[in-house]
Amino acid sequence: MSKKVDFNKSIQGLSLADLQARLEEDKLRLKKLEFAHAISPLENPMSIRSLRKDIARVQTAVKQKQAEA
Rank of each mutant, 00 (worst) to 15 (best):
N8W: 11
F35M: 09
K9P: 15
S40V: 13
D26N: 00
Q59D: 01
I48W: 12
N8C: 08
G13T: 09
M1T: 08
L28A: 03
I55E: 01
R52P: 00
Q66Y: 02
L23M: 11
S40A: 13
Q64D: 13
L28K: 07
R29C: 11
P45E: 03
L16F: 15
F7C: 03
A21H: 00
A67F: 09
D26Y: 03
M46S: 13
D6Y: 14
Q64S: 07
S40K: 11
S2V: 06
L14G: 13
N44I: 13
E34G: 05
K32H: 14
I55S: 00
L16M: 15
T60P: 04
L16D: 15
S50E: 13
K53P: 05
D18W: 08
S15Q: 12
L28C: 07
F35H: 12
A38C: 04
A36L: 01
D6H: 14
R49V: 09
R22M: 10
L16N: 15
E68M: 04
M46A: 13
R49D: 07
Q66R: 00
S10W: 08
H37G: 06
I39R: 04
E68W: 04
L14K: 15
S2E: 00
S15W: 15
K65S: 03
K32Y: 13
S10A: 07
K32M: 12
A69G: 06
V58C: 04
G13R: 07
N44P: 05
R29H: 14
H37Q: 04
N44H: 05
S15F: 15
E34T: 08
Q59N: 09
P41M: 03
T60R: 11
V5M: 06
L42T: 14
L33V: 08
A17M: 11
A56Q: 12
V5A: 11
Q64I: 09
E68G: 07
A56W: 04
K27Y: 05
F7M: 03
V58Y: 01
A36P: 05
K31F: 03
R29K: 12
R57D: 02
S10I: 06
I39P: 01
G13N: 05
V58Q: 04
L42M: 14
A36G: 06
H37I: 04
F35G: 06
E68F: 05
L30V: 08
Q64G: 09
P41W: 07
L23P: 14
D6N: 13
E34R: 07
K4G: 10
Q59K: 02
L33D: 05
P45V: 05
V5D: 00
V62R: 06
E24K: 13
R52I: 01
A17V: 10
K53D: 07
R49L: 06
K53H: 12
